[in-house]
Amino acid sequence: MTQPANHSLSAAAARNLATATVTVPQWDHITPRWLHKLLPFVNVDGGVYRVNRVAQKEGKFQPELLTVDLGEPKLPTTFIDYEVDPREYHLSAIQTVLHTHTRITDLYSNQIDQLREQVRLTVEAVREKEESEIINNPQFGLLKEVSPSQTIETRKGAPTPDDLDELLTRVWKKPAFFLAHPLAIAAFGREATRRGVPPVVVHLFGSPFITWRGVPLIPSNKLEVKDNKTSILLLRVGEAEQGVVGLQKVGVTGEVEPGLSVRYSGTSDNSIASHLVTRYFSVAVLTEDAIARLDNVAVNNYHEYVYPTA
């Protein structure tokens, strides 16, 4: 007879945690998620965030203005028009129901709280999923939100200082950081070093990051690498800067950290306790020039160095 699959932590696994170790469960898929630390988040009370923009004709905004040096010329009249159908961002939700058997939490929480660790690891998974969605979601993800005029390709495949300089010409108003896969950052480091301009290192959050022109390159493994090719993003962030902002709903029932809740939702007749884990989020690009993308970034280009012999 086939045994039914477990829908909650097994007693055997719980005993291992309770009696054989004094460390919390380790999970190698947890990342630092620097993007979430560097991206300002805005509280969205009604679940909808509307981006109102100035209306432009042929991509330009040209109010009627006159520079006066002498005399009393007739002054032009003008007004600032707005888009009549601004874009609205609706918060998305990442949700799951965490199951824990009450016997497990009662009997095997002597050294380590079993429920707390189940919740902690579930929240970590939700945060990892959120970072991936912020970058890759087909509706609002950062890769998709870059306009054609802000998208360029590498000159020769490998990411060079010239390529990153080109990105900086697209987001020149207070650029905050580059966002790239660790392999792309390593590839850029090789190209810069080969040119004799090894990147300067700065420390943020207690960790080192290489920079270009003073702008840090922030790693995220959520940017896809396919056939040794990937993309690099450059962002300006914050509402005050008309940049990129994260969206979230703060103050929901059962909130364990801003915008993320763990809500007890009952115990079944099988002694399975359920907790609903929810994260409401999205991301908005306030102006087109707040983000740019470098495509066709090759990460497999290496150099052979010949050193003179004595």
Rank of each mutant, 00 (worst) to 15 (best):
V252L: 12
A184V: 09
P73W: 00
I94P: 03
V252T: 12
W27K: 05
V22E: 10
L65A: 15
L286K: 01
A187N: 12
Y307R: 12
L276T: 14
L70A: 14
S265R: 10
T96Y: 05
K156T: 04
R263E: 15
G157K: 07
K174C: 00
T309S: 15
G254I: 13
Y307G: 01
L75P: 00
E166K: 08
N43H: 14
Y108F: 14
G251Q: 07
Y264D: 12
V225T: 07
P199E: 12
V244I: 05
I112M: 09
R155P: 00
K144S: 02
Q139A: 14
F79G: 00
V299S: 02
V252Q: 10
P182E: 07
T193F: 06
K129N: 06
P198T: 10
I112D: 09
F209M: 11
H36K: 13
L66H: 09
R116I: 00
T105V: 14
N221D: 14
I134R: 02
R87P: 03
R53P: 01
E117N: 10
A284V: 00
P73H: 06
T96D: 15
G251P: 00
L143D: 03
D227V: 02
N296I: 04
P199D: 12
P198C: 09
V244M: 05
V171I: 03
V202N: 10
R293D: 11
Y305L: 13
K226V: 03
K60A: 06
P32E: 13
K129I: 01
R190W: 05
E304D: 02
K156H: 03
G196M: 09
N43W: 01
T122K: 07
G189D: 06
E130R: 14
H7R: 15
R194C: 05
R127H: 15
T2Q: 06
N137D: 14
V54E: 15
S147A: 09
D106A: 15
L142F: 11
K144G: 06
V22C: 07
T96E: 01
S282R: 09
P63E: 12
A184P: 04
K74E: 13
S274K: 13
H29Q: 15
A5Y: 08
T96H: 06
L294W: 02
K222L: 04
N270I: 00
Q150P: 04
V225R: 12
P199Q: 13
D113M: 07
I112T: 13
P159Y: 08
K174W: 00
V44G: 02
V44E: 07
S261C: 02
